[in-house]
Every structure is written in C-alpha cells, then in structure tokens.
Design a protein around this nucleic acid. Structure first.
Lengths: 336, 336
DNA sequence: TCGGTTCGCGGAATCGGTTCGACAGAAGAT
DNA sequence: ATCTTCTGTCGAACCGATTCCGCGAACCGA
C-alpha cells in the first residue's frame, strides 16, 4: 500500500498520484477522481517517514516536559494539553521528551536526530543549558518561561513579578500590613527556577514600596508541604494576615491547616494567588487569583510555527499579565 | 552532516560507517575509532526519518489520550507520565494523540501513516471503535482499560468491580448498612465507560451479597460536582453513613461539603475510594483507598513491546487488584 | 499549415540511511 | 604452488515519498 501501488491500480505514474494529492500541479479532474477512488478503496495514506525524508520536515513538534518523577502542577498540565490541542488543530503531532537532566538521551534524540521541526521547552531555569544546546543546533524553539538572558530567544511567559506585586497591592489596599509570600520549593528556588525568583523579586519590591512587612517562605509543592509551611508561618509570624502565593499545589494543604487552626478565610486570613483559572474556580472558597491562561500553550505553538516559517525574523516574546480575578479569598484586614 | 559526509572525512564508504555504528558486521578496531572520531567531532546523529524509512520501524510509540478539553485526572496523568518514562528507558519516543472523537485526524495520522510502531490507548469505552480500527490496521496496540469483548486484545486494567466490592465489604465489616457509590459523570456512564460500569456492577453485587441498602449516584468529575452531589445525597438519603467512590476529582468537593455540613470524617461518615497512591496520601485526612499503581503505564509499555516483538503470540492481559490501604477516612458506623 | 503556447502526464533523480552480494588480500590447508 | 577460508571493505540496490525536466498532444492565431 505505497504510492506505487496506487499509481499502478489507477493506471498513472507515481508522480501523478503525488501531484493529485498535493495539488502542486494540475491533474485533470477525471484522473484525480480515479486516483482518489483507488486511495479510498485501499485506505492509503502516505508513509510519514518517506515524506519527512524527502521534504526535510517531520510535521512534528517536540515538547520537553519535566521528568516523570516530578509531578506536574495543574498549570503545567494545562500547558501540555493546550500545546497538544493547538498542534492537532494545524495537523501537527507532538513528541514528548521527559528531560530535566543535563544530558538526556531523549532530549538529544529529539534535537539532533531531526525528529521534529521545532521544540517547545517547559520549566526552564534562569540558566538553562537545554536552551544553549538548542541555540547551537539551530533548531527552532520556543520556551514557556524565560531565562536570565531572554533577548535572543522566543518565549511566552507569565509576568510573575508583576502578578505577585499586584497581589500585594491588592492586599495592601484592603489594609493588610503583614503579608507572607509562599513560594515554590526550596530546591526550585536554589536551582534558579525563574518563576520562583521573579515572584520573590516582585514581592520584595512591592512590599517595600507600600511600606509593609513581608515574609517569604519556600514550600514543598504538595498538600502536606503547604500544611507544614502554614503551621510554621503561624508559629513564627502570627502577625501575618494575608498570603500571596504562586504555589498552586500547596494551596489545599494551606487551606486545611487554616481550617484546623480555626482561621477563617477571608475573615482572619486573606489569600491571593497565581493559578490556572479552572483551578482557582474549583477551589473552595473560590480563589482570588491572577488567572494564568492555559492558552499559553497555544501561544507557544503559534510563536513556534512563526519561527519555523521565518527562522531569521527577530525573536518575539509574549509576557502575559492577566488581571486578578476577585473571588472569595480576600477581604479587609481584621481589626485587632 | 549526513552519513556520506562522515564516510568521506573518515576515508571509508557509507556502508562501513553504518556497520561501525550498528555493529552488525565486524569493522577493524582502527577504522572504527577513526569513524568515531569524526562522528564525535561533527556531533553526527543519523537522520531518524531515513532510518525509519529503511528499517520499517520508527522507534516511536503512540499514546492516545483524551482530548484536551476533558481534564485528565491525577490517575490518568500518572499513566501518561509512567508510559513516557518507561518508553524513555528503552530509548523510545512517545507521540501524543489527543483523540476522543470518532474519526480523529490525529488518530488516523498515527495509526495509518506508520508514524509509530505501536499504540497505547487510554480511556477506552466498553464498545470502542478506536480498538476495532486498530485491529483492522494490524498495528500492535495495548489498552489501559478493556472493552466488553477483551479476549482478542492486549490490555492492562484495574479491577474496578472487585475493588469497589472490597470497599463495600470493608465498610460493611465496620457496621455500615447504608452505603453510597459516587460514580463518575453521567455522560461517561452513558457512553459506556468501562470503569464506571464495572464499579456499578461490583457495588450492586457486593451490596446485595451483604444485604445492605445501596444508592448509586453519578457525579461530575470535579470539585463543584462532588459538592453538589454530596448535598443531593444527604438530602435524599440522610441514612447513608459511608461512601465508596472511584471519582478522584470529585473528592475535594465531597470533603468540603461534608465539612460545611459539620459531618466529621470518619466519625459521622466513612469514605473508601479507588485512587492514585500519592493522591490518597496527600488527601486530608489520608484516604482509605485501593491504591491504583501508576506503574500501570510501565506494564502497558512492556506488553506493547512484547506484542511488537511477537505479534502472533496470544494477547496477554493484566488485571490488577491492589489491596485497600487502610488510612484515616473509614471508621465504625455511628451508633444512632 | 505551421510555429508557439498550454495542458497533462511520465521518467528519473533525490532525500539519508541499511543491507546484501562481491571482492581483494592475507592466512591457513593440502 | 594451488585451493580454500577468513577479514575487512566497498558498491549498489532499496525503503516511499517529492519534484524537476521534458515530452507528446491539443489548441490557437496568423
């Protein structure tokens, strides 16, 4: 069931079948229909490898995700889903590469075996050698998140610094004077993980600007982590009345610890976060948060397609600053 | 940077380079080292498409996931992660196809464009046309979950009927007489989604066997769904003192509704579920549940590799029945 | 009727690997 | 000295598409 078979049965040459399929040259309507009939009958579809070899492109995008051992957050998951969906809409397939390590075989296969036409990189660090590796090879790529030197690359990101600053301002407007930042895990912060670093910067600046006292804490990215982090916070800083956080995964634990301690939200404690929209909505009470649009994956695909089409165009960036959706977890600071 | 370039620089023929790389014929140690030196210098890696074309295999596995619009549960996510990880361990890549629809372009590309050597199918229904389509094409495949007629296919699944039955027995042993099954969404049940159907069967039989009264409810697969489902349950069946569920995603909502109503777990209400292990552990209080091993993805990959190697061997199945881990959400029935 | 244009199609090269058959030269057997 | 057996390498075919070049027939205006 290759193109030769179709050609023989339709009584034409292989090239004619190819042209009938691609439309790159005129084929008489009669011939075209005859060919199509044979194709339908045999359910023929061109061999992807042969086409990729000849055309020099694979019609496949690579998506580099964190290794399976690290559990993905809802937000990251949303990115994956929207990347896959956006790619499917333009008839592209997505090849997954779980790679966090330095010199990953899977990553190398993808980038230097010409298995994909372009790569989307997730969870990048401020200094990320995968980015430099991709720059070497010349393979088009887009990152979700950006490095410390983002000028030369194409990326889409959420402006964590500004978003966390907005959370702080919102809380300050409500009269809160003592605010805590609950950041991502200590390991990530130490590894130079961009969002964690930038959230801290934004927090520190905003707190200083409003003359508040701020305390920042790292917190393991899961429910138990949030729970113990909050216990520690209430013990060491009982004066805190509001929390800003980018740690989605820790929120259920935070919430639970507050409940156990009899601290009502938002009466006794306000929470403003940065999270996936559906996640914030599903949260009880609904979370006041800057809704990170999961469509970021779509944007990443768009940018990547552009870059593949015109590799020499200056790299474009997209820094999103979604507004804070006021829901039910923030309120006026308690009067002592 | 193709094999010809390497051959020229090393002063040998292309075939010799190929043999040096594959080891399928002896190449003198001296020549081999010379070739390797050139390869290292140029950072050469064979073109995947060319190799796939000639060899007739792509070294790629297809993973068909639910479309992006449907949010994946933690358990499904765990499968994806473990499939990707298992594939990476044996140097295989994973191609994602988001396809739930009947005649999906992405699915068709994968199965009939010979883009993959085998396919893993998730979220299959009792009658699933994707399965019949794959059987037509002869492409090796393994399903996570099984259809109503599973004899001829290769699959790995969790024995939901038995697990839910065990939950019922466990709860009955604790003295509960009125037990509710909180199932997956009504749409899934209507669509003939296997786990939902089998959970219902197992529940009904176990309840009858123990002479209990059981009530089964469908419930949207998210927190708000769980919340409203529980409210409805308490209104219509206030006598229920225990819940068995396979609806992971609804649990936070269930939990929240119970709290709001002042119903303590497990004092006033026991809950036994089927969920991913880490999920059950993170839940507060830790959930008594049959821990679905996320390693099911690994097993699926193993089965698939076997099937690819020996397509004519009789299809193998794997029906897992993990034991119930007793944690903190079940206790003796309340004395009235 | 003739030269030129258009239309529809076939032939053959090409992409970059793998693999089979052949072959030269060295080594061993008789 | 001749015949056989290895060893190590090369050349060429092949996988299944795409695409450039060119050819014959039809068509058209003069």
């Amino acid at each position: 069931m290759n193109i030769g078979e179709i050609a023989r049965r339709a009584g034409v040459s292989r090239s004619t079948v190819s042209y009938a399929l691609s439309g790159k040259r005129v084929v008489s309507e009669e011939t075209r229909q005859r060919i199509q009939a044979v194709i339908d009958e045999l359910d023929y579809r061109p061999n992807a490898a042969a086409r990729a070899l000849k055309e020099g492109r694979t019609r496949t995008l690579g998506l580099v995700i964190p290794p399976a051992s690290l559990r993905l957050t809802d937000m990251q998951l949303g990115f994956v889903a929207s990347v896959v969906e956006a790619a499917a809409r333009v008839d592209l397939d997505v090849l997954l590469s779980p790679s966090g390590g330095d010199h990953d075989r899977s990553f190398e296969r993808i980038v230097s075996g010409r298995r994909v036409d372009g790569v989307i990189l997730m969870e990048i660090r401020l200094e990320d050698e995968r980015v430099t590796r991709l720059q070497q090879t010349g393979l088009p790529f887009v990152t979700i998140g950006h490095t410390a030197h983002p000028q030369g690359t194409c990326w889409v990101d959420v402006d964590y610094a500004t978003l966390i600053a907005r959370c702080v301002h919102h809380l300050a407007d409500l009269g809160h004077r003592h605010i805590a930042l609950i950041n991502r895990s200590a390991e990530l912060v130490a590894a130079g993980y961009g969002p964690a670093q930038r959230a801290l910067t934004g927090f520190t600046e905003a707190v200083a600007q409003r003359g508040l006292t701020g305390v920042d804490m790292c917190c393991a990215d899961d429910a138990p982590g949030g729970e113990s982090c909050l216990e520690q916070l209430r013990e060491q800083h009982p004066e805190v009345t509001a929390i800003a956080t980018i740690n989605e995964a820790a929120l259920p634990g935070i919430q639970r610890a507050l409940e156990r301690a009899g601290v009502a939200v938002p009466r006794d404690m306000s929470i403003a976060g940065v999270a996936a929209r559906h996640w914030a909505e599903d949260f009880r009470p609904p979370l006041t948060a800057a809704d990170v649009p999961t469509e970021m994956g779509n944007h990443a695909v768009d940018l990547l397609l552009e870059r593949i089409a015109t590799p020499d165009a200056p790299p474009r960036h997209l820094l999103l600053t979604p507004p804070i959706s006021l829901r039910s977890t923030t309120g006026p600071a308690p009067t002592r």
